[in-house]
Design a binder for these strands. Structure first.
Length: 802
RNA sequence: GCGCCCGUGGCGAAAUUGGCAGACGCACCAGCUUUAGGAGCUGGCGCCGUAAGGCAUAGAGGUUCAAGUCCUCUCGGGCGCACCA
């Protein structure tokens, strides 16, 4: 009989679909719960990527094993469907984003179902469904209520060609993602979420969770906490001061200038006092015109302007110091001002060289005539602090500043508040109304959701406003406060919004009264295992942890962290080692693979192709190998002569297999698990190797989470009535594995000279006797003195001779 | 520049965490089998050598009875952040 994957897979998928309870998660079940989460896909027009299949198949195997072990498993799926690609696609093709999204979801759903994944479809969610985004808006209102959502005028990336505002992630490298034109800066009123209020907890609470070390480091680096000192420089002949952050207060005596960012407000405040204001103003305007790209690529030549007419005083030695403006100083970090210590900082050194600013050594250990010395060392030229080492000096000087109310300890973060406005159509409307009389008024909860108007015109307006601004009948509303004329906020949320809390909605997807019921949340949280792409380990992970912590503070979720464990999977590249893309013509469509080889082969191959967390190239030949393996499995189960009583060595083999598959699945080592199945089939295929029906069934149970269709079919062929997926995960016989024989490696001076089978029960002395009796051993030690014998139980013996 | 990770056959990779290097799969070679199908079966497959044996985990050194695994340096590659004071 032939292995007809098409027929088998179609049949079983139909039966499983009817039997809704098979993969359903049950709220409040007495069984231990297990929440397994995969990042939900963005349903693009391209269809499912084989990279999705990799993650879903592997976690499906994990989830199925957990079910067989008696857990109440929640393994859900949904659609992260708001966002620019759909909006652009819609504009280009004249299809409404709603229709495009529905069409794409339908296609994704068909593709995912054809893989036989055990998702609980009754919990399917869609971030663009008003019943879903009602709660995204509701959470936003909570942020607003607590003062963590605020509006501010700030420069955003603006594409002069597309005439549209760009999010940072749409302007990577300073160019517009769509047309490649360099992005400019433009001042627009934006909504921000105060994620910086959670910076410390977002770092510190990483101790509570099990993420890959790499992922934790990424989060920590992104937040970029650094401890240092604030120090106030008084402005000469004025009562004002300029506050500066530094991590190297030990170098304060080496300050030879103060440098301000061009955006620093002080410049505008003091323009009357600045003698060369036109020159300074020109410089400010010029740097505003530069893109981030230009500002960062001009690193080598440091350009700035000295501000004439303003001097500041070094608080430690009362020295008078010049003030400069230069755009290598970042406006949004550390107050937008830097104390320049050319002797001990690379950038300051370059700048000082350019403008012949004094270079004064205050930390010994380097040769500052050649290059800046940036290491710690012993202080010189620092008056009362001479002779201290840097670390001690930092402490003492900071203390001195604090005592004299001239500064003190300070912490700074690279993390900025999250720009939450998008001037686009296809996103959640921000539920705010602007009233001339009452100001910024939240939409009352009872009026949520604020639905996106279904209109024909969602093209950018070109004014920098969202396309929603052009829809008068939607924009003009009554103020909920005073009933006067008012206007809706026309910005929408970024597509990070819906994905910041989606894992909570799976827990209670149909609830109309709250985003999710508290008791259910308590039952299901935390997420036990969260898997997704490495590209989401900074932003998405950080954002969703932030939202979760906020909800935790409102006592709306029971845990301070959402995800107990996070694993990431590697990208699947095309056969030519390039990213798969339509334009390169190297895309592998899972539909075609399933048609030719079947879903089970595809699933097995995606797990076998390499270590799960590693980027790997597709190879159709490798897939064929997995297809052959399943054919061999099919074949052997249809050969009566392979059944009988289990031969003795097979008994150990099957127990080893149970142990290994279990361990490999827990460790996410799917590739070696598949290899173990292949090994076992190779072994069983050998002449005269027979298995009992029970042991062959054990093999099928182990393989079922990996290749669910073929195993269900073969299981039925062995006269079973119920689904194999309802079976209990096999246990192994530890005793059997621990007793018995093993192959002892015999080494002379660390080189393998012989191998013998010995019992695990033998004492060391008996093993030594057996070893010495071997011809190969005698040959290699004759005439030599035995210095030492190393014996590693169950493994090897090493005889050291002179 | 800073931080993290990684270098093993022709290729994707294993290696119980210091104990047989190359499991498993691909590709390749030989044989069998009327076999047109991304066929199957058997055997081979790191390098040198007829063999015994020797040499091999990017390179050099070190620790150890024993090193792919630990330490030091060099070379090569990947990822993240990127003027963060």
């Amino acid at each position: 009989m032939e292995y007809d994957h098409k027929k088998i897979e179609a049949e079983w998928q139909k039966i499983w679909e009817k039997n809704e309870k098979l993969w359903a998660a049950e709220d409040f079940s007495k069984k231990p719960k297990q929440y397994i989460l995969v990042e939900f896909p963005y349903p693009s027009g391209e269809g499912l990527h084989v990279g999705h299949v990799r993650s879903y198949s592997a976690l499906d195997a994990f989830a199925r094993k957990k079910r067989m072990e008696g857990n109440n498993v929640l393994y859900p799926i949904g659609w992260d469907a708001f966002g620019l690609p759909t909006e652009n696609y819609a504009i280009k093709n004249g299809i409404h984003p709603r229709e495009a999204t529905d069409k794409n979801i339908k296609n994704y759903k068909r593709q995912i179902k054809s893989l036989g994944l055990s998702f609980d479809w009754k919990r399917e969610i869609d971030t663009t469904d008003p019943a879903y985004y009602k709660w995204t808006q509701w959470i936003f209102l909570k942020f607003f209520e607590k003062g963590l959502a605020y509006q501010v005028e700030m420069p955003i990336n603006w594409c002069p060609q597309c005439k549209i505002g760009l999010a940072n992630e749409e302007a990577v490298g300073g160019v517009c993602e769509r047309c490649g034109a360099p992005a400019e800066k433009r001042n627009v009123k934006q909504w921000l979420l105060k994620i910086t209020a959670y910076a410390d907890r977002l770092i510190d609470d990483l101790n509570e969770v099990d993420y890959l070390e790499k992922i934790k480091t990424q989060q920590i680096n992104w937040i970029g906490r650094s401890y240092g000192t604030n120090v106030d420089f008084k402005i000469k002949s004025n009562s004002q001061k300029i506050s500066v952050f530094t991590t190297r207060i030990d170098t304060i005596f080496g300050v030879t200038a103060l440098v301000l960012a061009p955006e620093n407000k002080i410049l505008q405040d003091f323009k009357e006092n600045i003698a060369n204001w036109p020159e300074v103003e020109n410089y400010i305007i010029a740097s505003a015109k530069k893109s981030d790209l230009e500002r960062t690529t001009e690193q080598k030549e440091r350009i700035g302007v000295e501000i004439k007419g303003i001097k500041v005083i070094n608080p430690l030695n009362q020295e008078e110091i010049a003030v400069w403006v230069a755009d290598y100083v970042i406006a949004t970090y550390g107050g937008g001002a830097v104390m320049m210590v050319p002797a001990h900082d690379r950038r300051d050194w370059d700048f000082a060289k350019n403008y012949s600013i004094a270079i004064k050594e205050v930390v010994g250990g380097g040769d500052i005539s050649k290059e800046p010395y940036v290491e710690y060392g012993r202080l010189v030229n620092s008056e009362g602090f001479n002779g201290l080492d840097s670390q001690e000096a930092i402490e003492k000087i900071t203390q001195w500043l604090a005592d004299n109310t001239l500064g003190g300890k300070a912490v700074n973060y690279k993390l900025r508040d999250w720009i939450f406005s998008r001037q686009h159509y296809w996103g959640e409307p921000i539920p705010i109304i602007h009233c001339d009389k009452c100001g910024t008024v939240p939409v009352p909860e009872s009026e949520l959701p604020v639905e996106l108007p279904y209109v024909e015109k969602y093209q950018p307006t070109g004014t920098g406003e969202s396309p929603l601004a052009a829809i008068k009948e939607w924009v003009n509303v009554k103020c909920p406060n005073c009933q006067g004329q008012a206007k809706r906020e026309t910005d929408t949320m970024p597509n990070w919004a819906g994905s910041s809390w989606y894992f909570l909605r799976y827990i209670d997807p149909k609830n109309n009264n709250i985003f999710a019921d508290g008791k259910k949340l308590k039952y299901w949280l935390m997420v036990d295992l969260y898997n997704g792409g490495m590209e989401h380990t900074t932003l998405h992970l950080l954002y969703s942890r932030f939202w979760h912590k906020f909800l935790y503070d409102l006592k709306l979720v029971p845990t301070s962290e959402p995800y107990a464990r996070r694993q990431s999977h590697g990208i699947v590249l095309a056969e030519d080692n390039q990213k798969m893309s339509k334009s390169r013509g190297n895309v592998i469509n899972p539909d075609n693979i399933i048609e030719t080889y079947g879903a089970d082969s595809l699933r097995i191959y995606e797990m076998f192709m390499g270590p799960f967390d590693q980027t790997i190239s597709w190879n159709t030949n490798g897939l064929v190998g997995c297809y052959r393996f399943l054919n061999r499995v099919w074949d052997i189960f249809h050969r009566p002569e392979k059944f009988g009583s289990t031969v003795q060595d097979a008994e150990i083999k099957i127990n080893q297999l149970i142990k290994r598959i279990g361990e490999d699945l827990e460790a996410m080592k799917f590739n070696t698990a598949v290899a173990a199945f292949m090994e076992f089939i190779n072994f069983w295929s050998e002449d005269a190797k027979t298995l009992s029906k029970k042991d062959s069934e054990t093999f099928l149970k182990l393989l079922a989470p990996f290749a669910p269709h073929i195993c269900e079919e073969l299981w039925l062929g062995l006269d079973n009535k119920m689904s194999i997926h309802l079976e209990t995960w096999p246990a192994y016989n530890l005793e059997l594995l621990e007793k018995g024989d093993y192959e002892l490696i015999i080494q002379i001076n660390g080189k393998v000279r012989d191998k013998i089978m010995v019992s695990k029960k033998l004492e060391r002395s008996e093993i030594e006797k057996l070893t010495m009796a071997r011809d190969a051993v005698k040959k290699h030690i004759s005439g030599k003195e035995i210095k030492k014998i190393i014996f590693v139980p169950n493994r090897l013996i090493n005889i050291v001779v002179s």
